[in-house]
């Protein structure tokens, strides 16, 4: 046969439902970020034109915000149990300087999510809830007092800045720095080597279960 058959070992990392929820959060967040930045700083105002026109963006942004919160709460429901910080996570956080500079030694193995991912998750949950509450006030400016509106602007902008900062780190890690992560969130599987290297404790949990798949690959 001209084609050599080979096998590769993959580990199922995210179910279809988990991926749908993640990308629902991601797409709504990006819309909210771009439309929000358009109103935050005039040099970004052209984002509003790209998204269909500034007056339309003003109407759509709050509804997309509600969709974002719904998706985020579903995410909280399915991932909360995997997001509990444990003792090794604290050790991991102390080793962040080594982790961030590409050193392997002294960095404890992570479970399904590493401590950085867990902190990102909590950041987005807290920011999302505060963005929702302040956003409701800003949605109906005639219904709330001036003091409440002023506080809401500060909270909304501050939480958006924090959430965007966390997103920049997340996109950098998932797309650029830790190669192979994106495959997990797109196709649902990662290589066994990736699972061992980045989430060793998790890999040992799923080892020997149906989550580990050996599939025929073709060159």
């Amino acid at each position: 046969m001209a084609v050599r058959e080979r096998r590769r070992v993959l580990v199922r990392r995210y179910s279809l439902f988990e991926r749908v929820v993640h990308w629902a959060v991601a797409i709504t967040f990006v819309y909210l970020m771009l439309s929000g930045l358009a109103l935050f700083w005039p040099p970004f105002f052209w984002f509003a034109h790209v998204l269909g026109g500034p007056a339309l963006v003003r109407i759509v942004h709050p509804y997309v915000g509600i969709a974002f919160i719904v998706a985020l709460l579903v995410m909280l429901g399915i991932w909360a149990k995997d997001m509990v910080l444990d003792r090794l996570d604290i050790e991991w956080l102390k080793a962040v300087p080594r982790y961030a500079t590409g050193q392997e030694e002294g960095v404890p193995e992570s479970g399904r999510f590493n401590a950085g991912q867990k902190l990102l998750f909590y950041t987005q949950i807290v920011a999302g809830i505060l963005l929702l509450l302040s956003g409701i006030v800003l949605w109906f400016p005639m219904q709330f007092t001036a003091g409440l509106r002023q506080a809401s602007f500060i909270i909304h902008d501050l939480m958006a800045i924090i959430a965007i900062g966390a997103l920049i780190v997340h996109i950098y890690m998932g797309l650029f720095y830790i190669r192979g992560s994106l495959q997990g969130m797109v196709e649902g599987v990662v290589s066994r080597a990736w699972a061992r290297a980045h989430h060793g404790r998790w890999y040992r949990q799923v080892e020997g279960t149906s989550a580990v798949i050996t599939e025929e690959a073709h060159d």
Partner: peptide, 22 residues
């Protein structure tokens, strides 16, 4: 910061396992 970090510390790749002949 992300760009500078990438240029200095590059992507982290996990070497693939040697494929197994069928």
């Amino acid at each position: 910061g992300a760009i500078l970090h990438y240029l200095r510390f590059g992507p982290r790749r996990v070497p693939a396992e040697e494929p197994v002949e069928a």
